[in-house]
Simulated assay, not measured.
Amino acid sequence: MTFAGKKIREIRRQRGFSLTELADQAGVSKSYLSYIERDVQKNPSLHFLTKIAENLGVEVKDLIGEQNNQSRLEQLDPEWEDLLKTAIRNGLSKEDFKLFTDYIQFSKKHSK
């Protein structure tokens, strides 16, 4: 089980949510949430984790990474973290972000 899946299940149960209740409140698929918790799906998006974390009353950093390691979000400058969270809330996908960064790299390379 991924750390995120394990933590989601643990916190969900502590809060007294059924799988269906959490999925409904977070606006995510019950089957996808189940896949995450059971480690069938091992790479949940940050958008998904954000929805789950908000409904569990925790931060995304509490769901990801190793227990003893600082999460990647904690290593970000707070302004970058706010920008990323806003972009995710507005529907930016990992694929969109990758295309954008590829475009920036391409533009820099060809502007010289």
Rank of each mutant, 00 (worst) to 15 (best):
T50W: 09
T50E: 13
T50L: 14
T50M: 15
T50S: 15
K51W: 05
K51G: 02
K51L: 13
I52E: 06
I52L: 10
I52H: 01
I52P: 06
A53E: 04
A53C: 02
A53V: 08
A53Q: 05
A53G: 06
A53M: 09
E54Y: 02
E54I: 03
N55W: 09
N55R: 15
N55V: 01
N55K: 15
N55F: 03
N55E: 13
L56G: 00
L56T: 03
L56A: 02
L56I: 01
L56N: 01
L56H: 06
L56K: 04
G57E: 04
G57I: 04
G57K: 04
V58P: 11
V58H: 03
V58S: 11
V58F: 01
E59G: 12
E59K: 13
E59I: 01
E59F: 04
V60Q: 09
V60A: 10
V60R: 03
V60G: 03
K61W: 05
K61A: 13
D62F: 00
D62I: 00
D62Q: 09
D62G: 01
D62N: 13
L63D: 04
L63W: 05
I64D: 02
I64F: 02
I64R: 07
G65F: 01
G65W: 03
G65R: 08
E66G: 11
E66H: 12
E66C: 07
E66N: 11
E66A: 10
Q67Y: 09
Q67H: 10
Q67K: 14
Q67P: 10
N68Y: 07
N68V: 05
N68L: 08
N68A: 06
N69M: 15
N69Q: 15
Q70F: 08
Q70G: 05
Q70N: 04
Q70S: 11
S71Y: 02
S71D: 05
S71W: 06
S71I: 03
R72V: 15
R72L: 11
R72T: 11
R72C: 07
R72M: 14
L73N: 00
E74S: 12
Q75K: 15
Q75W: 05
L76P: 01
L76S: 02
L76E: 04
L76I: 02
D77L: 06
D77V: 00
D77C: 09
D77Y: 05
D77T: 06
D77G: 07
D77Q: 12
P78S: 10
P78C: 04
P78G: 03
P78Q: 14
P78T: 07
E79T: 11
E79I: 13
E79S: 05
E79Q: 15
W80G: 06
W80F: 14
W80Q: 12
W80I: 12
W80A: 13
E81D: 03
E81K: 15
E81W: 01
D82N: 11
D82H: 10
D82F: 10
D82V: 02
D82I: 11
L83M: 11
L84H: 02
L84Y: 02
L84P: 00
L84S: 03
L84V: 14
L84K: 07
L84M: 14
K85R: 15
K85E: 11
K85C: 08
K85A: 08
K85T: 10
